[in-house]
Design a protein around this nucleic acid. Structure first.
Length: 265
DNA sequence: CCGACAACCTGTGAGC
DNA sequence: TGCTCACAGGTTGTCG
């Protein structure tokens, strides 16, 4: 579910409410996520002093360390002003001072919760630059010898952080690049165009509160609106908004790939 | 080093 | 209606 714009949307929706509060109680009802949830006793009593994001990771900065959260495919975090009994798949609760409850739900359990005393624990160490810190020349250097397709390369977090399947498809459409092109086939010019397209699409998506295909919600339970602005994702057989050709769908490295066969070359 | 693929989970919708 | 199967927004480990 959540790619960079969705995680940023969640971050913004939570920040004001939670910064300055203490973590009063932690309840883990299901430890088995992507990795077993390990939250030390030290976390209880800590104060949340900031909420950041790196790629698709949410970073709760406390006065004692970092709580690192990844939402996986189906994770959601929401704030409940009044405690209510947990539902199926509500795996983790953080009770914050002032009786605010931060509740984590994750049906597929691909999410990640870990505590770290450093800002950059292992899963973040291999992450590539934020898309907003990337430039065309840097992207060009990292794809120029690669035989994998540009679509696969965009999905590789070691190259650039935060881009998932929806926005990889959308950025390639905007840059008018065929997702099947091998990385080494891209010109410097194409890389510059692609980086601009990535930035644009991510910024617009953040502006619209992310994409809600099905169950994405921000911390206040509100859906995003960017699904209304998608140009190719999920539009197989429909007309290209630019040239009217039929949008095609194919599977690339196991992921659904949508593109306009006429515009993207 | 690189790339392909399986694995980790549950829910849902299509097709029969 | 009910069953089975493929697929879904992500990451990581293994193997060749």
């Amino acid at each position: 579910m959540p790619e960079l714009p969705e995680v940023e949307t969640v971050r913004r929706s939570l920040e004001r409410e939670i910064v300055g509060r203490r973590i009063v109680r932690v309840e883990v009802r299901k430890r088995r996520l992507r990795r077993p949830v390990g939250l030390p006793a030290e976390i209880v009593g800590s104060e949340i002093v900031g909420l950041g994001r790196r790629g698709k990771y949410l970073l709760f900065r406390t006065d004692r360390g970092w709580l690192v959260v990844h939402l996986g495919m189906s994770g959601t975090v929401r704030l409940l002003p009044h405690p209510e009994p947990p539902g199926l798949h509500d795996h983790i609760d953080l009770l914050l001072s002032g009786d605010l409850l931060l509740r984590y739900r994750d049906p597929r359990r691909f999410g990640l919760w870990l505590w770290s005393v450093e800002e950059t624990p292992p899963p973040l160490r291999t992450l590539g630059p934020e898309p907003f810190e990337l430039d065309g020349d840097k992207l060009y250097r990292s794809v120029q010898n690669r035989r994998r397709t540009i679509k696969q390369l965009l999905l590789d977090g070691r190259l650039v952080a935060g881009i998932g399947n929806i926005y990889a498809n959308e950025a390639l459409f905007r840059a008018r690049l065929d997702p099947r092109l091998e990385g080494r086939c891209l010109t410097r010019e194409a890389c510059r165009r692609l980086v601009s397209s990535i930035r644009e699409v991510l910024e617009e998506a953040i502006e619209l509160g992310g994409t809600t295909l099905k169950d994405f919600r921000n911390g206040r339970g509100q859906p995003g609106k960017f699904q209304l602005a998608l140009k190719v994702y999920g539009r197989e057989g429909e007309r290209c908004f630019r040239c009217q050709a039929a949008i095609r769908k194919m599977v690339l490295a196991g992921r659904s790939t949508y593109f306009c066969p006429r515009c993207q070359r």
